[in-house]
Design a protein around this nucleic acid. Sequence first.
DNA 1: TTGAAAGCGCTACCAC
DNA 2: GTGGTAGCGCTTTCAA
Lengths: 355, 355
Amino acid sequence: MANIKDVARQAGVSISTVSRVINDSKSVSPSLRVMVEKAIDDLNYSTNSIARGLKSSQTNNIAVILTSVSRTFFSGVLEGINKEADQEKYSIFISETHDSIEREIKLVRSCASQWVDGIILASSAYGNDMKTRKYIESLSKLEKKGSWIPVVTLEYPCSNPGVDAVVVDHKKSAFRAVDYLIREVGKKSIVHISLPFEHYMGQQRIAGYREALEQNGLLFTEDNVLEGDYTSYCGYTLTRDLVRRGHPFDAVFCANDQMAVGVLQALSELEIQVPEQVAVMGNDDIFAASIVKPSLTSIHVPRFEMGAAAMKHMLELIREGEPPVKRKIITLDTEIVERESTKRGIKNSLKYLDW
Amino acid sequence: MANIKDVARQAGVSISTVSRVINDSKSVSPSLRVMVEKAIDDLNYSTNSIARGLKSSQTNNIAVILTSVSRTFFSGVLEGINKEADQEKYSIFISETHDSIEREIKLVRSCASQWVDGIILASSAYGNDMKTRKYIESLSKLEKKGSWIPVVTLEYPCSNPGVDAVVVDHKKSAFRAVDYLIREVGKKSIVHISLPFEHYMGQQRIAGYREALEQNGLLFTEDNVLEGDYTSYCGYTLTRDLVRRGHPFDAVFCANDQMAVGVLQALSELEIQVPEQVAVMGNDDIFAASIVKPSLTSIHVPRFEMGAAAMKHMLELIREGEPPVKRKIITLDTEIVERESTKRGIKNSLKYLDW
DNA sequence: TTGAAAGCGCTACCAC
DNA sequence: GTGGTAGCGCTTTCAA
């Protein structure tokens, strides 16, 4: 690949002139401009963004660090991010942590050292050890050449108050879900399959679950809260286990849809009627919710909007160039999407989106 | 973020020495090494990979260019790619073309100009116009600082014979699927919902479909081949349309699972028995195939292995440093996964993978 | 074993 | 309008 020097030689002009043409400066005569453009075309030259970045400290790259792109939830988020990025000249750089905090730390460091212009992060830094805390601390102080690299977290606010976030109110969502199960569906013994207990989001949902029970005069018992691990397999086994133990319940609220699908599968095998005997509710409203039979009532999380909002906010932060005076947390609304797993005979509109 | 100069000053040594420590050269005295390491730690220094790349022309970044990460098919591929990359020191850089050839061309150029060490590409360059051909031509000649940037394509071999690929035999897969529908399921009027006709993979599958019919003494008619667009919506509408027109058919073979899910939905609404009246078969075996009811018979494509093989091969190409004498096309095997949409009463083992 | 200095490809500043 | 040149942060000779 030719470099700027080659182009200059080929066109018979100085490097400066070539640079001016590339960067669209007006102070270059039409004749020279034409010659340079021809040389660029002849040599199939394209400017080396590494070297450019080294000088200008602007790479036009934005890193998106997620736990896993195959987690359906994040696919939608990515669509939103991409949509906003496309309109500007930014490229997106996706990497995956697979829920490993070590990998997350390594990736953030690596992105910073590559001088990305910003980082959109779905963190799994739940721990409270020294190393994790130091890492979280560092998130608001990432720099390249002395200038600030903004970080925006997804899903929940990171514990560093210097980092902005785009979130949904997990507690409120869970509250409304359980309140709905009690008041609209008429259930009384609601089991909650949660996320790993250490996860902030899981804790929030448990809090919402509890509040809904108590406000409706029902008893909160720890027996009814099961620790899940995101997978549909755990929903499946936990449910079979509940039934085997003869634990009484007439509804299950799961912290994500994958687990709820596992619950449905187990109930179907055990020939337990949904929703008459047991109603099931998920969270996130991924497309699988509308595909399973019975279709799954879930809480719709605006994933696309979440990604778009994160990117939009990121662009603002980059434009401003320095940490905002006051932290900004953008909260998006969720809503319940009612389907057959809580209400018999409801018409299930299969979503015809790309997946 | 501190730079190497700062570290050198802090440690009271030369830049060269710091560089030696960073790059693990042995020719540095233990005492100095300790001082430098302390300085690095104190300043929280991490080496700027941009500048490093500028000099060494090795960035340790590998670009993965896909149509869309939310297309379930590619999620699995990414897992495989990541698994292999993790073992080495490479970072993965994912971007999406959304089936736009312009975007694809732009991305490849941009990656090359960022001096990635290699590009794994799921191309949508089906066109035959001048620009596309020139682009495909260029794929085997990507360079940074005069050294070759290897490209490996996924899913199908690109028409440039200088580009290696990891693929499955689409024609053979389709052949086996249709042969199975005829001989095992006993169907005779098989409709094929294809990909957009211009797509190489779609053409291959149609060829396999045709061959299976003919080898089994059935007539191939163009009426039975419908052009699809990947979405479940098109499977849905095409099926309703067939039925409305009174087109006779007793099986549908779809070029992907999404379309097959749409077919199932339409048949269910029309109260047509699956598989007795109409058997349905998909392609790819994404997890949705095991979730729908009736569950969907499909062709399992080893996505994970595909990604892993592509990455493995990429690392070899990078190690060798120059184009191989002979093009290598790695072909992986597919297999039929039998479920309820072609065989009543078969036990459906829901896959408990992460999705 | 150590340090000085050239140079990777580019931009930006300063002269002319 | 144009060209010369310093320098971004790093690696890599070459000398000492």
